[in-house]
Amino acid sequence: MSNLKAVSGYAPTESEASSSTPTAISIKNLYKRYGNGPVILNDINLDIKKDDFIALIGPSGCGKSTVLKLLAGLTDKTSGDIQFLTSHNKQQPKMGVVFQDANLMPWLTVMDNVALPLGLKGMDKSEANKKAEALIEMVGLGHVKNHYPRQLSGGMKMRVSIARALSVEPELLLLDEPFGALDEMTRDDLNEELLKLRQTHGWSGVFVTHSVTESVFLSSRVLVMSANPGQVYREIKIDFPFPRTAETRQLKAFQEKVVEVTQALHELRSLA
């Protein structure tokens, strides 16, 4: 660690700070099977801190999406515990979810898609639209707010999806391969935008990715998962300070983290 700091030339890392920030979600001994099928998640333990942005990476089918679905309440756990320790001690924190393929309602305009979660919460339409409009501006889609999803490019759809997730002012943001379908350049751009948004909104987050660079660039911790059954194979702390920019990618320390994650994935492959 210390030599990384020297190389990067950055101010003290966040690692000390984050160890003192409160835990937002605590996952203990989590097991998951679908019906009577095989064990998909085997004893997952994870503390998500308030300022954490956690990357899940691992071979296809290892249960990354399942972790997100469990957090979002879209599927039931088999055993174990997911505790939400939010500020107002509710059952669940306010959650935004960004799904793998944007999952926009094709019959709703950009505006109505972003306002959808607010409408479902019972917010009145004009207020919801005002909030949606601000978010659409923020993700840079003001000029297409009355367009329908089929008129948008993949990257634009993804941004709409992110704006929709942010509309509920989430305390926890879950993202499942949000930029998986995009080209490298667009992906890098959106990565940077996402970090800017995080800077202003300050949610904790968990995201799934297949891109090693993305996992290192975005996250405060990378969890490398192994498959059959899904387990946390290694946890790699990424302690470059936020905000990270295009220059961060050029750092030698950054490259070293990329190598570290890649190596962990290679080890997994040779184990299998």
């Binding site: 679905k69 879209l74 979810v97 799904f99 999952n103 959808l116 979660p117 409408g119 919460k121």
Partner: peptide, 29 residues
């Protein structure tokens, strides 16, 4: 109804009525 769109509605705690009116019926149109 597209399972993924149902997940969106569930993730945002939609009521069964909203799920029918705002998702399943438009989807079936």
């Amino acid at each position: 109804t597209d399972k993924n769109l149902v997940d969106v509605f569930r993730a945002y705690n939609a009521s069964a009525k909203d799920e029918m009116l705002k998702l399943r019926i438009p989807y079936a149109m």
